[in-house]
């Protein structure tokens, strides 16, 4: 396949004396979908947030699209970059949050085109075209002038996906995108994500949707207590887990 989109090498992260990531190493190739599963508090969301430097790290290295994320290396020391430079790196990485985090004072379309205009320098007319196309892609062509408070949870999350896509990212991060949704709304969001995966988007998805992981993921990784316990194809990890901890977790959620 293609080149490495994400290359995380023994990433460590502590809050005080509590080491929440104890050396996570994994790679994601261009076009691959990686699903991260694990119990709550296992560090899976923290790891995802390290990938676009919403969290700083204490050790290890993260390369996204061949660029060292958030730091400049000189010898054995990583120097944190200036916010301006980190912001530039983040443009290539889209992120979708559990609680949507749409901008409530802007309409759906304004949410989508805010970053292309303000960050990407796209002219407003062009951005509007792009925004309408993206909203159509997530099935919300007629909701452009609705405020987030006038949309259902599932619709809000789809707007959030469109907003992340508007910066034309090379990598999409999903942090439990369906956990805050009513059950009947989960399907619409997952369908949009499946469409993205099919179109070749590189995706890392923290999720509790085992069905989605089985159907869409190229690779599944099970994280517990800040360590990778098991990693492999969905069949290997979900159907024939080797480790006791993986088995115990899957027994609880399936």
């Amino acid at each position: 396949m293609g080149h490495l989109m994400v290359d995380a090498r023994s990433v460590r992260k502590s809050y005080g004396s509590n080491e929440v990531l104890q050396g996570i190493s994994l790679t994601v190739e261009s076009g691959e979908v990686l699903c991260i599963i694990g119990p709550s508090g296992s560090g899976k969301s923290t790891f995802l947030r390290c990938l676009n430097h919403l969290e700083s790290i204490n050790g290890g290295r993260i390369y996204v699209n061949d660029e060292l994320m958030g730091y400049r290396q000189s010898g054995k020391v990583l120097h944190e970059m200036k916010p301006k430079d980190i912001a530039k790196q983040r443009q290539a990485i889209g992120m979708v949050f559990q609680r949507f985090n749409l901008f409530p004072h802007m309409t759906a379309l304004q949410n989508v085109i805010e970053a292309p205009i303000g960050v990407g320098g796209v002219n407003p007319e062009e951005a509007k075209q792009l925004g309408l196309e993206l909203l159509a892609q997530v099935g919300l062509a007629d909701k452009g002038d609705h405020y987030p408070s006038q949309l259902s949870g599932g619709q809000q999350q789809r707007v959030a996906i469109a907003r992340a896509l508007a910066m034309k990212p090379k990598l999409m991060l999903f942090d439990e995108p369906t956990s805050a949704l009513d059950p009947e709304l989960v399907g619409d969001v997952l369908d949009v994500m499946k469409g993205l995966a099919k179109a070749g988007m590189t995706m890392i998805v923290v999720t509790h949707e085992m069905g989605f992981a089985r159907e869409v993921a190229d690779k599944v990784v099970f994280i517990d207590k800040g360590q990778i316990v098991e990693m492999g194809s969905p069949k290997q990890v979900l159907d024939k887990p080797q480790e006791a901890r993986t088995k115990a977790f899957l027994n609880k959620v399936l």
Binding site: L54, R90, Q91, R163
Partner: peptide
């Protein structure tokens, strides 16, 4: 979460403050 969303879109600190 508003600040995180703005950051994840590549917005600078000043832009986040002014626009969001």
């Amino acid at each position: 979460g508003q600040v995180e969303a703005a950051k994840s879109l590549g917005m600078s600190g000043g832009q986040t403050m002014r626009r969001i």
